[in-house]
Amino acid sequence: MMDILQIFLSDSFWAASLRIATPLIFGVLGALLCERSGVLNLGIEGIFVVGAMMGWLTAYLTGSLWLGVIFAALSGGLFGLFHAVLTVPLGLSQHVSGLGITMFATALMSFSYRTIFPQVSTPPRIEPFRALDVPLLSDLPFLGPVLFQQTAMTWLALLLVALLWWIMDRTALGVAIKAVGDNPDAVNAQGLSVIRLRMGAVVAGSALMALGGAFLTMSAFDAFFFGMVNGRGWICIALVIFASWQPGKALLGALLFGMFDALQVRLQTEAGALIPGQVFLMVPYVLSIVALIIAARKADYPRALLQPWFKGQR
């Protein structure tokens, strides 16, 4: 028991929680934006791979990390546009299109990596984002290591939470996006374009998802590996329901998740001899299912989620 208390008191635990939460924050925000407009984006898992690969590759070729971040977002947006075209104007199955995008994106990135780097023994590496060193603040006890020694991408994620909250709650654009996910006919009656709003939300949301992937190769690690996304996209799809499609709760959900994940790593070192390590590896996925079960009953789905809309019908 003392050990667990010690874990919760250590700054490294909280720093790790925020670090683990970062890619999920990007992903949940992206999924939130898509779903608020009425489009489920199961392409998320593949778009994470796109962000991881394109961000890393750009940084590797140009030496500029921020150029990598921009390219990751642009490439993610491009795959988002693909999903948007299939599901919004064409109104095709969002489930099948999303899974198709995930398979296509994953295969394309793996093929490209293998073609560009045929049979390398050690994966090429980049110099990743370093922990920020904010004068004075980084030296604060506890808060310093937890908040002010994270990388710039973590701060970008936190800023995006605030930005998305502001857009969704305080601007006409946010009201329109939420309305188009609830009642597209009403939006159309107001003279706004349902198609453009939805496509815009899906493209922007997908760009956010790709940043989650980019964090993995450019901040958490320094190289691209096959299978490194490892279900994080799917976890985000569960977390967005847990967050009832609200940016603030999305941050909270991702942080809670990061906490549990950081905790299991530490418990693993404590109890490793008693319990097989795999039990701990299952924790993130089990937690996601549990979160889904807790949230599902009272989940207030965007009412037009999954429903295609065609101009001039009904």
Binding site: G231, W234, A238, Q278, M282, Y285, I289, A299
Partner: peptide, 26 residues
């Protein structure tokens, strides 16, 4: 989980893939 709690089976069945594969390794 879908019929009792309304938990989306897309996500739960997907996540189970990961859990089961780790279980197999164990």
């Amino acid at each position: 989980l879908k019929t009792r709690f309304g938990a989306d089976e897309v996500v739960t069945s997907l996540l189970l893939n990961f859990i089961i594969l780790i279980f197999v390794q164990m």
